[in-house]
């Protein structure tokens, strides 16, 4: 098989700065398979793009840990404390009101707002933390230079190997991706 393979189309002679190489796949299973094999081949700076979330994909490209849960947890704790002490400040320090003869610091009455503030802060931390960790918003990203990349929002699946991967060697990456069933492999300029 290897001897009958047609010569590679994309030989890079002029060194325009390269973001990486992107391969186009027809289905989610092809993409996950290719991502797994690429990761196994030792590439680490790889990324997958698909029209909808694919559960296995993040694990296939080696993205198994995220700090987002910790950020959300801290957000929740801050929200809980802020919620409780806001009410404590109002009810006990700033403007004490006798409600039904109950103590000023009536913790059961403070729980609903404390709970809501926990949820609110945790939710905001989740959204903002996600944006920060993803470095969003990002007005420009080289991957959009790839031909056909608009199809990533419809019915095409892409796998990019970035040029700053320590193992990156242009021709070998192109060959690997083609051997993994890519229907097209293109260079992506920065």
């Amino acid at each position: 098989m290897a001897t009958t393979r047609p010569p590679l189309v994309h030989h890079r002679r002029h060194a325009t700065p390269l973001y990486g190489v992107i391969a186009e796949f027809e289905g989610p299973a092809d993409l996950v398979h290719a991502a797994r094999k690429t990761y196994e081949a030792g590439y680490r700076r790889i990324n997958g793009y698909s029209p909808y979330p694919i559960e296995e994909l993040s694990e296939a490209i080696g993205f198994t840990h995220t700090r987002l849960p910790l950020i959300v947890f801290i957000g929740g704790v801050v929200g809980a404390l802020a919620g409780y002490f806001m009410q404590y400040y109002i009810e006990v320090i700033d403007y004490p009101l006798n409600v039904g003869g109950k103590p000023y610091n009536s913790w059961p009455a403070f729980i609903p707002i404390t709970f809501e503030m926990t949820v609110l802060f945790a939710a905001f931390s989740a959204v903002l933390g996600m944006l920060v960790l993803n470095k969003l918003p990002q007005p420009y990203h080289p991957v959009f230079n790839a031909p056909n990349f608009a199809m990533a929002t419809r019915d095409r699946f892409f796998l990019a190997v970035e040029a700053n991967d320590p193992q990156f060697e242009h021709d070998r990456v192109v060959e690997l991706l083609k051997s993994l069933g890519a229907i097209e492999v293109n260079d992506v300029e920065v």
Binding site: G100, K102, P108, A109, I111, P112
Partner: peptide, 12 residues
């Protein structure tokens, strides 16, 4: 469980 407590405690 807490809802029941909160309402009964508030009403007293």
């Amino acid at each position: 469980a807490f809802s029941q407590y909160l309402i009964i405690w508030s009403g007293n």
